[in-house]
Design a protein around this nucleic acid. Structure first.
Lengths: 202, 202
DNA sequence: CATATCGCACAAAAAAACTGTGATGTAAAT
DNA sequence: ATTTACATCACAGTTTTTTTGTGCGATATG
Protein backbone atom coordinates (compact mmCIF):
# COMPACT_ATOMS: atom_id res chain seq x y z
CA UNK A 1 0.00 0.00 0.00
CA UNK A 2 1.50 3.28 -1.03
CA UNK A 3 1.41 6.27 1.23
CA UNK A 4 1.49 9.08 -1.28
CA UNK A 5 -1.08 9.77 -3.96
CA UNK A 6 0.96 9.52 -7.14
CA UNK A 7 -0.70 10.19 -10.46
CA UNK A 8 -1.42 7.37 -12.82
CA UNK A 9 -4.47 7.70 -15.10
CA UNK A 10 -6.62 5.51 -12.87
CA UNK A 11 -5.91 7.56 -9.82
CA UNK A 12 -6.39 10.86 -11.56
CA UNK A 13 -9.89 9.70 -12.42
CA UNK A 14 -10.47 8.74 -8.82
CA UNK A 15 -9.38 12.04 -7.47
CA UNK A 16 -11.81 13.69 -9.89
CA UNK A 17 -14.68 11.65 -8.48
CA UNK A 18 -13.67 12.61 -4.98
CA UNK A 19 -13.44 16.26 -5.90
CA UNK A 20 -16.91 16.16 -7.41
CA UNK A 21 -18.21 14.75 -4.14
CA UNK A 22 -16.52 17.44 -2.14
CA UNK A 23 -17.84 20.16 -4.37
CA UNK A 24 -21.41 19.14 -3.74
CA UNK A 25 -20.84 20.29 -0.20
CA UNK A 26 -18.04 22.81 -0.10
CA UNK A 27 -16.12 25.01 -2.50
CA UNK A 28 -12.39 24.33 -2.49
CA UNK A 29 -9.51 25.51 -4.57
CA UNK A 30 -7.35 23.14 -6.59
CA UNK A 31 -4.45 23.77 -4.28
CA UNK A 32 -6.52 22.95 -1.22
CA UNK A 33 -7.82 19.86 -2.90
CA UNK A 34 -4.33 18.69 -3.74
CA UNK A 35 -3.51 19.12 -0.10
CA UNK A 36 -6.57 17.19 1.03
CA UNK A 37 -5.76 14.41 -1.39
CA UNK A 38 -2.29 14.07 0.04
CA UNK A 39 -3.89 12.88 3.26
CA UNK A 40 -5.59 9.99 1.49
CA UNK A 41 -4.19 6.61 0.61
CA UNK A 42 -5.31 4.48 -2.29
CA UNK A 43 -6.12 0.92 -1.29
CA UNK A 44 -7.50 -2.17 -2.91
CA UNK A 45 -9.36 -4.85 -1.01
CA UNK A 46 -10.04 -8.28 -2.33
CA UNK A 47 -13.29 -10.14 -1.91
CA UNK A 48 -14.00 -11.02 1.70
CA UNK A 49 -11.27 -8.87 3.11
CA UNK A 50 -12.36 -6.72 6.00
CA UNK A 51 -12.33 -2.96 5.79
CA UNK A 52 -13.24 -2.69 9.43
CA UNK A 53 -13.35 -5.56 11.85
CA UNK A 54 -14.73 -5.92 15.32
CA UNK A 55 -12.30 -4.98 18.06
CA UNK A 56 -10.20 -3.06 15.59
CA UNK A 57 -8.51 -0.12 17.21
CA UNK A 58 -7.50 1.93 14.22
CA UNK A 59 -10.50 3.09 12.25
CA UNK A 60 -10.32 4.69 8.84
CA UNK A 61 -12.76 6.55 6.67
CA UNK A 62 -13.19 4.93 3.30
CA UNK A 63 -14.44 6.53 0.14
CA UNK A 64 -15.52 3.74 -2.20
CA UNK A 65 -14.32 4.06 -5.75
CA UNK A 66 -15.51 0.72 -7.11
CA UNK A 67 -16.95 -2.52 -5.85
CA UNK A 68 -19.40 -3.07 -3.07
CA UNK A 69 -19.08 -3.59 0.66
CA UNK A 70 -21.49 -4.71 3.31
CA UNK A 71 -21.80 -3.46 6.84
CA UNK A 72 -23.11 -6.05 9.27
CA UNK A 73 -23.02 -7.50 12.72
CA UNK A 74 -23.49 -11.00 14.08
CA UNK A 75 -26.03 -11.47 16.84
CA UNK A 76 -25.95 -13.83 19.81
CA UNK A 77 -27.37 -16.67 17.72
CA UNK A 78 -24.61 -16.32 15.16
CA UNK A 79 -26.94 -14.86 12.57
CA UNK A 80 -25.64 -12.14 10.32
CA UNK A 81 -27.56 -8.89 10.02
CA UNK A 82 -26.65 -6.59 7.19
CA UNK A 83 -27.21 -2.95 7.99
CA UNK A 84 -26.35 -1.43 4.66
CA UNK A 85 -24.38 -1.75 1.48
CA UNK A 86 -21.71 0.63 0.43
CA UNK A 87 -21.35 1.26 -3.26
CA UNK A 88 -19.46 3.68 -5.50
CA UNK A 89 -19.17 7.22 -4.14
CA UNK A 90 -20.16 6.22 -0.62
CA UNK A 91 -18.30 7.03 2.52
CA UNK A 92 -17.76 4.32 5.07
CA UNK A 93 -17.12 6.14 8.29
CA UNK A 94 -16.57 5.08 11.85
CA UNK A 95 -20.25 5.69 12.35
CA UNK A 96 -20.97 2.29 10.81
CA UNK A 97 -18.41 0.65 13.00
CA UNK A 98 -19.96 1.94 16.16
CA UNK A 99 -23.60 2.14 15.28
CA UNK A 100 -24.63 -0.18 18.02
CA UNK A 101 -21.92 1.17 20.24
CA UNK A 102 -21.38 -1.23 23.07
CA UNK A 103 -24.15 -3.63 22.21
CA UNK A 104 -22.82 -4.98 18.96
CA UNK A 105 -19.88 -4.22 16.81
CA UNK A 106 -20.14 -3.99 13.09
CA UNK A 107 -17.83 -5.54 10.54
CA UNK A 108 -17.36 -4.01 7.16
CA UNK A 109 -16.72 -6.75 4.69
CA UNK A 110 -15.78 -6.53 1.08
CA UNK A 111 -18.18 -8.17 -1.36
CA UNK A 112 -16.06 -7.88 -4.42
CA UNK A 113 -12.68 -6.47 -5.24
CA UNK A 114 -13.06 -2.98 -3.99
CA UNK A 115 -10.98 0.11 -4.47
CA UNK A 116 -11.10 2.84 -1.88
CA UNK A 117 -9.56 6.08 -0.87
CA UNK A 118 -8.56 5.68 2.71
CA UNK A 119 -8.31 8.40 5.37
CA UNK A 120 -7.15 7.62 8.88
CA UNK A 121 -9.03 9.28 11.72
CA UNK A 122 -5.78 10.88 12.70
CA UNK A 123 -5.46 12.46 9.27
CA UNK A 124 -9.10 13.41 9.30
CA UNK A 125 -8.72 15.30 12.54
CA UNK A 126 -5.66 17.01 11.22
CA UNK A 127 -7.51 17.99 8.07
CA UNK A 128 -10.46 19.26 10.04
CA UNK A 129 -8.24 21.42 12.17
CA UNK A 130 -6.32 22.82 9.25
CA UNK A 131 -9.08 23.29 6.73
CA UNK A 132 -11.95 24.28 8.87
CA UNK A 133 -14.75 23.73 6.38
CA UNK A 134 -13.88 20.12 5.67
CA UNK A 135 -15.44 19.11 8.93
CA UNK A 136 -18.82 20.08 7.59
CA UNK A 137 -18.37 17.71 4.67
CA UNK A 138 -17.71 14.70 6.81
CA UNK A 139 -20.47 15.49 9.27
CA UNK A 140 -23.07 15.97 6.57
CA UNK A 141 -22.20 12.63 5.01
CA UNK A 142 -22.54 10.84 8.30
CA UNK A 143 -25.84 12.42 9.24
CA UNK A 144 -27.37 11.59 5.92
CA UNK A 145 -26.41 7.96 6.40
CA UNK A 146 -27.87 8.02 9.87
CA UNK A 147 -31.32 8.95 8.62
CA UNK A 148 -31.25 6.47 5.75
CA UNK A 149 -30.33 3.63 8.07
CA UNK A 150 -33.07 4.36 10.56
CA UNK A 151 -35.67 4.61 7.82
CA UNK A 152 -34.64 1.23 6.54
CA UNK A 153 -34.89 -0.47 9.89
CA UNK A 154 -38.38 0.94 10.35
CA UNK A 155 -39.51 -0.22 6.92
CA UNK A 156 -38.10 -3.70 7.51
CA UNK A 157 -40.30 -4.10 10.54
CA UNK A 158 -43.47 -3.04 8.83
CA UNK A 159 -43.64 -4.93 5.53
CA UNK A 160 -43.69 -8.48 4.25
CA UNK A 161 -41.11 -10.24 2.12
CA UNK A 162 -42.50 -9.27 -1.26
CA UNK A 163 -42.91 -5.62 -0.36
CA UNK A 164 -39.39 -5.42 1.01
CA UNK A 165 -37.97 -6.99 -2.12
CA UNK A 166 -39.91 -4.66 -4.39
CA UNK A 167 -38.85 -1.65 -2.39
CA UNK A 168 -35.23 -2.69 -2.71
CA UNK A 169 -35.73 -3.20 -6.44
CA UNK A 170 -36.92 0.39 -6.74
CA UNK A 171 -34.19 1.82 -4.54
CA UNK A 172 -31.16 -0.05 -5.89
CA UNK A 173 -32.06 -1.72 -9.20
CA UNK A 174 -28.37 -2.08 -10.10
CA UNK A 175 -27.54 -3.89 -6.87
CA UNK A 176 -30.17 -6.57 -7.49
CA UNK A 177 -28.16 -7.71 -10.51
CA UNK A 178 -24.83 -7.40 -8.79
CA UNK A 179 -25.32 -8.87 -5.34
CA UNK A 180 -25.22 -12.58 -4.65
CA UNK A 181 -28.78 -13.49 -3.80
CA UNK A 182 -28.00 -14.87 -0.36
CA UNK A 183 -26.53 -11.54 0.64
CA UNK A 184 -29.48 -9.64 -0.70
CA UNK A 185 -31.75 -12.05 1.17
CA UNK A 186 -29.88 -11.41 4.37
CA UNK A 187 -30.24 -7.68 3.87
CA UNK A 188 -33.98 -8.04 3.43
CA UNK A 189 -34.19 -10.27 6.49
CA UNK A 190 -35.16 -13.34 4.46
CA UNK A 191 -33.59 -16.66 3.58
CA UNK A 192 -32.14 -17.09 0.12
CA UNK A 193 -34.74 -19.77 -0.63
CA UNK A 194 -37.62 -17.49 0.16
CA UNK A 195 -36.11 -14.74 -1.92
CA UNK A 196 -35.51 -17.10 -4.81
CA UNK A 197 -39.14 -18.19 -4.71
CA UNK A 198 -40.29 -14.60 -4.57
CA UNK A 199 -39.17 -13.79 -8.08
CA UNK A 200 -39.30 -17.21 -9.72
CA UNK A 201 -42.87 -18.12 -8.72
CA UNK A 202 -44.21 -14.92 -10.14
CA UNK B 1 -15.77 -16.13 19.02
CA UNK B 2 -16.05 -17.64 22.45
CA UNK B 3 -13.90 -16.50 25.32
CA UNK B 4 -13.78 -19.61 27.44
CA UNK B 5 -12.42 -22.99 26.42
CA UNK B 6 -15.44 -25.24 26.85
CA UNK B 7 -15.09 -28.94 26.22
CA UNK B 8 -16.58 -30.48 23.13
CA UNK B 9 -14.83 -33.53 21.65
CA UNK B 10 -13.13 -31.48 18.94
CA UNK B 11 -11.64 -29.09 21.43
CA UNK B 12 -10.57 -31.78 23.83
CA UNK B 13 -8.50 -33.25 21.02
CA UNK B 14 -7.01 -29.83 20.33
CA UNK B 15 -6.01 -29.26 23.88
CA UNK B 16 -4.28 -32.64 23.81
CA UNK B 17 -2.22 -31.60 20.81
CA UNK B 18 -1.26 -28.41 22.56
CA UNK B 19 -0.32 -30.26 25.71
CA UNK B 20 1.90 -32.60 23.74
CA UNK B 21 3.68 -29.58 22.30
CA UNK B 22 4.18 -28.07 25.71
CA UNK B 23 5.50 -31.30 27.13
CA UNK B 24 8.28 -31.44 24.60
CA UNK B 25 9.66 -28.36 26.29
CA UNK B 26 8.42 -28.23 29.86
CA UNK B 27 6.84 -30.52 32.38
CA UNK B 28 3.49 -29.22 33.63
CA UNK B 29 0.79 -30.63 35.80
CA UNK B 30 -2.76 -31.15 34.55
CA UNK B 31 -3.98 -28.39 36.80
CA UNK B 32 -1.41 -25.95 35.46
CA UNK B 33 -2.27 -26.94 31.93
CA UNK B 34 -5.96 -26.35 32.55
CA UNK B 35 -5.02 -22.93 33.76
CA UNK B 36 -2.85 -22.21 30.73
CA UNK B 37 -5.61 -23.37 28.45
CA UNK B 38 -8.05 -20.97 30.04
CA UNK B 39 -5.96 -18.13 28.58
CA UNK B 40 -6.46 -19.40 25.05
CA UNK B 41 -9.34 -18.81 22.73
CA UNK B 42 -10.44 -21.14 19.97
CA UNK B 43 -10.84 -19.41 16.63
CA UNK B 44 -11.58 -20.38 13.08
CA UNK B 45 -10.39 -18.43 10.08
CA UNK B 46 -11.73 -18.85 6.61
CA UNK B 47 -9.64 -18.88 3.46
CA UNK B 48 -7.95 -15.55 2.82
CA UNK B 49 -8.84 -14.07 6.15
CA UNK B 50 -5.91 -12.39 7.83
CA UNK B 51 -4.51 -13.66 11.06
CA UNK B 52 -2.25 -10.66 11.31
CA UNK B 53 -2.36 -7.65 9.05
CA UNK B 54 -0.02 -4.74 8.55
CA UNK B 55 -0.63 -1.82 10.86
CA UNK B 56 -2.53 -4.05 13.23
CA UNK B 57 -2.08 -2.94 16.79
CA UNK B 58 -3.25 -5.96 18.69
CA UNK B 59 -1.09 -8.97 18.00
CA UNK B 60 -1.89 -12.49 19.03
CA UNK B 61 0.05 -15.71 19.20
CA UNK B 62 -1.57 -18.46 17.19
CA UNK B 63 -1.11 -22.17 17.58
CA UNK B 64 -2.27 -23.80 14.37
CA UNK B 65 -4.52 -26.79 14.78
CA UNK B 66 -5.42 -27.38 11.16
CA UNK B 67 -5.06 -25.71 7.80
CA UNK B 68 -2.16 -23.73 6.48
CA UNK B 69 -1.16 -20.07 6.62
CA UNK B 70 1.42 -18.01 4.82
CA UNK B 71 3.54 -15.26 6.22
CA UNK B 72 4.56 -12.68 3.65
CA UNK B 73 5.27 -9.09 2.88
CA UNK B 74 4.79 -6.96 -0.21
CA UNK B 75 7.81 -5.05 -1.46
CA UNK B 76 8.00 -1.64 -3.08
CA UNK B 77 7.24 -3.11 -6.49
CA UNK B 78 4.08 -4.73 -5.24
CA UNK B 79 5.58 -8.20 -5.42
CA UNK B 80 4.66 -10.67 -2.71
CA UNK B 81 7.41 -12.47 -0.83
CA UNK B 82 6.46 -15.45 1.24
CA UNK B 83 8.68 -15.95 4.24
CA UNK B 84 7.27 -19.15 5.56
CA UNK B 85 4.25 -21.41 5.79
CA UNK B 86 2.60 -22.28 9.02
CA UNK B 87 1.11 -25.73 9.25
CA UNK B 88 -0.35 -27.93 11.98
CA UNK B 89 1.37 -27.65 15.37
CA UNK B 90 3.16 -24.42 14.45
CA UNK B 91 3.20 -21.25 16.43
CA UNK B 92 2.65 -17.98 14.69
CA UNK B 93 4.10 -15.38 16.98
CA UNK B 94 4.52 -11.65 16.78
CA UNK B 95 8.03 -12.40 15.62
CA UNK B 96 6.65 -13.03 12.14
CA UNK B 97 4.72 -9.84 12.24
CA UNK B 98 7.75 -7.75 12.98
CA UNK B 99 10.47 -9.66 11.29
CA UNK B 100 11.43 -6.79 9.10
CA UNK B 101 10.60 -4.33 11.82
CA UNK B 102 10.35 -0.90 10.33
CA UNK B 103 11.36 -1.79 6.83
CA UNK B 104 8.47 -3.96 5.86
CA UNK B 105 5.51 -5.32 7.67
CA UNK B 106 4.40 -8.85 7.32
CA UNK B 107 0.89 -10.09 6.75
CA UNK B 108 -0.22 -13.50 7.90
CA UNK B 109 -2.81 -14.77 5.53
CA UNK B 110 -4.91 -17.85 5.74
CA UNK B 111 -4.56 -20.27 2.85
CA UNK B 112 -7.40 -22.56 3.74
CA UNK B 113 -9.93 -22.76 6.50
CA UNK B 114 -7.71 -22.75 9.50
CA UNK B 115 -8.38 -23.51 13.13
CA UNK B 116 -6.15 -21.98 15.76
CA UNK B 117 -5.71 -21.56 19.44
CA UNK B 118 -5.30 -17.91 20.04
CA UNK B 119 -3.38 -16.18 22.80
CA UNK B 120 -3.28 -12.42 23.15
CA UNK B 121 0.04 -10.85 24.02
CA UNK B 122 -1.59 -9.51 27.11
CA UNK B 123 -2.53 -13.02 28.20
CA UNK B 124 0.87 -14.30 27.23
CA UNK B 125 2.59 -11.79 29.44
CA UNK B 126 0.27 -12.62 32.26
CA UNK B 127 0.98 -16.31 31.82
CA UNK B 128 4.70 -15.72 31.72
CA UNK B 129 4.59 -13.76 34.92
CA UNK B 130 2.42 -16.26 36.70
CA UNK B 131 3.89 -19.51 35.49
CA UNK B 132 7.51 -18.69 35.23
CA UNK B 133 8.63 -21.62 33.08
CA UNK B 134 6.14 -20.93 30.29
CA UNK B 135 8.31 -18.12 29.07
CA UNK B 136 10.96 -20.62 28.13
CA UNK B 137 8.47 -22.45 25.95
CA UNK B 138 7.54 -19.42 23.95
CA UNK B 139 11.09 -18.20 23.59
CA UNK B 140 12.35 -21.54 22.40
CA UNK B 141 9.65 -21.72 19.76
CA UNK B 142 10.48 -18.28 18.48
CA UNK B 143 14.21 -18.87 18.36
CA UNK B 144 13.82 -22.11 16.48
CA UNK B 145 11.74 -20.32 13.87
CA UNK B 146 14.33 -17.59 13.66
CA UNK B 147 17.07 -20.01 12.69
CA UNK B 148 14.90 -21.87 10.20
CA UNK B 149 13.92 -18.66 8.47
CA UNK B 150 17.48 -17.42 8.13
CA UNK B 151 18.62 -20.76 6.78
CA UNK B 152 15.92 -20.63 4.18
CA UNK B 153 16.79 -17.16 3.02
CA UNK B 154 20.43 -18.18 2.66
CA UNK B 155 19.54 -21.30 0.70
CA UNK B 156 17.26 -19.30 -1.58
CA UNK B 157 20.16 -17.10 -2.53
CA UNK B 158 22.58 -19.89 -3.22
CA UNK B 159 20.71 -22.45 -5.29
CA UNK B 160 18.92 -22.63 -8.60
CA UNK B 161 15.25 -23.29 -9.24
CA UNK B 162 15.45 -27.05 -9.47
CA UNK B 163 17.49 -27.40 -6.32
CA UNK B 164 15.14 -25.18 -4.37
CA UNK B 165 12.15 -27.15 -5.52
CA UNK B 166 13.75 -30.47 -4.66
CA UNK B 167 14.79 -29.24 -1.27
CA UNK B 168 11.23 -28.14 -0.57
CA UNK B 169 9.99 -31.53 -1.75
CA UNK B 170 12.22 -33.21 0.80
CA UNK B 171 11.33 -30.84 3.62
CA UNK B 172 7.57 -30.60 3.17
CA UNK B 173 6.39 -33.39 0.86
CA UNK B 174 2.82 -33.02 2.11
CA UNK B 175 2.70 -29.31 1.32
CA UNK B 176 3.65 -29.86 -2.32
CA UNK B 177 0.35 -31.68 -2.80
CA UNK B 178 -1.65 -29.24 -0.75
CA UNK B 179 -0.46 -25.81 -1.81
CA UNK B 180 -1.68 -24.06 -4.94
CA UNK B 181 1.29 -24.06 -7.27
CA UNK B 182 1.47 -20.29 -7.66
CA UNK B 183 1.88 -19.93 -3.93
CA UNK B 184 4.56 -22.57 -3.78
CA UNK B 185 6.29 -20.82 -6.67
CA UNK B 186 6.21 -17.55 -4.83
CA UNK B 187 7.72 -19.20 -1.77
CA UNK B 188 10.55 -20.60 -3.86
CA UNK B 189 11.10 -17.24 -5.49
CA UNK B 190 9.98 -18.47 -8.90
CA UNK B 191 7.07 -17.84 -11.23
CA UNK B 192 4.34 -20.40 -11.43
CA UNK B 193 5.24 -21.11 -15.06
CA UNK B 194 8.83 -21.91 -14.27
CA UNK B 195 7.76 -24.16 -11.44
CA UNK B 196 5.24 -25.90 -13.66
CA UNK B 197 7.94 -26.60 -16.24
CA UNK B 198 10.30 -27.86 -13.56
CA UNK B 199 8.26 -30.95 -12.82
CA UNK B 200 6.48 -31.48 -16.15
CA UNK B 201 9.55 -31.35 -18.41
CA UNK B 202 11.37 -33.96 -16.38
C1' DC C 1 -56.42 -24.79 9.34
C1' DA C 2 -54.35 -21.49 6.08
C1' DT C 3 -50.59 -18.47 5.20
C1' DA C 4 -45.95 -17.00 5.31
C1' DT C 5 -41.63 -18.18 5.90
C1' DC C 6 -37.74 -21.08 7.43
C1' DG C 7 -34.44 -24.91 7.03
C1' DC C 8 -32.46 -28.92 4.94
C1' DA C 9 -30.89 -31.49 1.00
C1' DC C 10 -29.39 -31.85 -3.41
C1' DA C 11 -28.34 -30.89 -8.16
C1' DA C 12 -27.56 -27.71 -11.96
C1' DA C 13 -25.33 -23.58 -13.46
C1' DA C 14 -22.08 -20.03 -13.23
C1' DA C 15 -17.95 -18.04 -11.71
C1' DA C 16 -13.42 -18.13 -10.06
C1' DA C 17 -9.18 -20.26 -9.24
C1' DC C 18 -5.70 -23.12 -10.74
C1' DT C 19 -2.63 -25.26 -14.10
C1' DG C 20 0.03 -26.24 -18.30
C1' DT C 21 2.23 -24.66 -22.33
C1' DG C 22 3.81 -21.96 -26.36
C1' DA C 23 5.95 -17.72 -27.83
C1' DT C 24 8.94 -14.22 -26.71
C1' DG C 25 12.10 -11.31 -23.75
C1' DT C 26 16.20 -10.50 -20.83
C1' DA C 27 20.30 -10.49 -18.22
C1' DA C 28 24.35 -12.88 -16.69
C1' DA C 29 27.74 -16.40 -17.68
C1' DT C 30 30.68 -18.67 -20.90
C1' DA D 1 27.48 -13.69 -29.61
C1' DT D 2 25.55 -17.68 -27.77
C1' DT D 3 23.87 -20.34 -24.26
C1' DT D 4 21.62 -20.77 -19.88
C1' DA D 5 18.19 -19.88 -16.60
C1' DC D 6 14.96 -17.83 -15.74
C1' DA D 7 10.79 -14.09 -16.40
C1' DT D 8 6.58 -12.27 -18.80
C1' DC D 9 2.53 -12.48 -21.54
C1' DA D 10 -1.31 -14.83 -23.52
C1' DC D 11 -4.55 -18.25 -23.61
C1' DA D 12 -7.07 -22.39 -23.03
C1' DG D 13 -8.36 -26.55 -20.45
C1' DT D 14 -9.38 -28.29 -15.87
C1' DT D 15 -10.76 -28.22 -11.25
C1' DT D 16 -12.89 -26.20 -7.42
C1' DT D 17 -15.94 -23.16 -5.28
C1' DT D 18 -19.81 -20.36 -5.20
C1' DT D 19 -24.25 -19.35 -6.42
C1' DT D 20 -28.82 -20.56 -7.54
C1' DG D 21 -33.32 -23.10 -7.98
C1' DT D 22 -36.51 -26.21 -6.11
C1' DG D 23 -38.84 -30.11 -3.62
C1' DC D 24 -40.28 -31.34 0.90
C1' DG D 25 -41.22 -31.05 5.60
C1' DA D 26 -41.20 -27.97 9.87
C1' DT D 27 -42.80 -24.11 12.39
C1' DA D 28 -45.14 -20.19 13.98
C1' DT D 29 -49.02 -17.05 13.87
C1' DG D 30 -53.46 -15.31 13.35
Amino acid sequence: MRKSFTKNPREIKMSEILKEQFEKVIKISDVDFEYILSHFTFKKFRKHQFLIQENQDVIYDYFILSGCVKSYFIDQNGKTHILLFGVKDWWITDYEAYYYQKKAIVNIDCLEDTEVLCLSNENREKLCRELHQIEHFFRKKTNRRNVALQNRILSLLSSNAKERYEQFLREYPELVQKLPKHILASYLGLTRETLSRLYSSK
